[in-house]
Design a protein around this nucleic acid. Structure first.
Lengths: 210, 210
DNA sequence: TACTGTACTGAACAAGCGTTCAGTTTGCGG
DNA sequence: CCGCAAACTGAACGCTTGTTCAGTACAGTA
């Protein structure tokens, strides 16, 4: 319930309090192994504090999980609030490019996002809803603007594009395995986007086989 | 190490031994909540046996997990071994339709498959590799046959199609949430396949905006 | 200096976990 | 019938887990 307004007014850089450090470690460890596999003692060791301090600050392990979810969702919200124009132009086909550009290369946030989406809890559902609504609006706008072929089922079309986007996060490791390039790395992203754009503009299947 | 050959020769229907019943329950519970969240006692209660019997038959909880993985992978292999012609024709765009047709409607297998793929363990990686290889071969065949537009990066194209397929399993709940139809139900599948085929043949984006 | 609230710790607790084991029941060949 | 291996159980063990709690260190205030 205490938000960042309770912290003393530090102008540019937060003083990296133990509380923030704990959340940072939790984010990293949760992303790497999943919250269930990470113990409070693991996080305490990572943050160089006692396990009791974590409970002191966040009430319970679940409280820390919730705080981490909120933190990531907040970052994601900030990315989603970018003007939609930035999404449509350049090689940035999708939300993924924007998200990757907004987070450092070794950030655990994409990985954590994957877990959040697949965990089935409301935070992930809300996140997907926002993502879908944004894509849905984009489909309408682009269709009206003549940049997109009209679809008889725009909801499915938006979900189709979103799912395609998401699969890069969800299947990152597997795609890296079969393609040889991490699809979320600059090189891998370029390969992926190039072929995806080609598929989306030139089509994949021929209408009939002459 | 003891395979099904050790069971007595029952002609049509396996006698549903306690051992099989345990695996069946494990499959259901693992799919529903994830192996980490399911205790040996949970599985024992589901199968109406003592926890000790599970360890007697499978050695350890990990042994049961491995056995369940193998069982699901075996079913999946049987689906993948279907002739590729069956995949290309009709509304069955993809592996998903074949898989769904091969399993009962309320089967926990698709859900378990999702967990297997995302768990990061070798069983899931092997499975994805097979899936990819099949799709990769399909891309070549369909391109030679003139049914598919040639791609400059066929590996990515195959991964792209596979990922699109997989996203229906991975995002099943979320897609059902935003679309109102479970994409793995007959109705939802029809909606999805119709729009996906449209996108794949007519394209999504226009080449230029006149 | 004395007071107070917050950050923080070490040690312990209760509960739940996977696993073990001695022992009982069951089924089957001799 | 006996004997023996396999199926199966109840009760416990050791360990890890999240959590609690009494107490310490330290800042800010009067």
């Amino acid at each position: 319930m205490t938000d960042s307004a309770t912290t003393p007014p530090s102008p540019a850089e937060p003083p990296a309090s133990a509380r923030d450090h704990i959340l940072e470690c939790a984010l990293k460890l949760f992303a790497a192994s999943g919250p269930d596999a990470v113990t409070v003692r693991d996080i305490a060791a990572c943050a160089h504090v006692s396990p009791a301090l974590i409970l002191h600050h966040y009430g319970s392990k679940q409280g820390l999980r919730d705080a981490t979810d909120e933190h990531v969702a907040g970052i994601f919200d900030a990315v989603l609030d970018m003007p939609i124009d930035a999404v449509t132009q350049d090689t940035t086909v999708s939300m993924i490019g924007v998200l990757l550009a907004a987070t450092p290369a070794d950030s655990p946030i994409p990985t954590y996002l994957r877990r959040l989406i697949l965990s089935g809890d409301p935070a992930g559902r809300k996140l997907i809803r926002q993502w879908f609504e944004l894509t849905r609006r984009y489909v309408d706008d682009a269709t009206v603007a003549g940049a997109m072929e009209p679809s008889t089922d725009p909801d499915v079309r938006a979900a189709f594009l979103m799912a395609n986007d998401l699969s890069m996060i969800l299947l990152q490791d597997h795609l890296a395995d079969v393609l040889g390039d991490d699809p979320l790395s600059p090189k891998g992203l370029e390969r992926w986007v190039a072929d995806a754009m080609d598929a989306y503009t030139s089509g994949v299947f021929r209408k009939e086989t002459p």
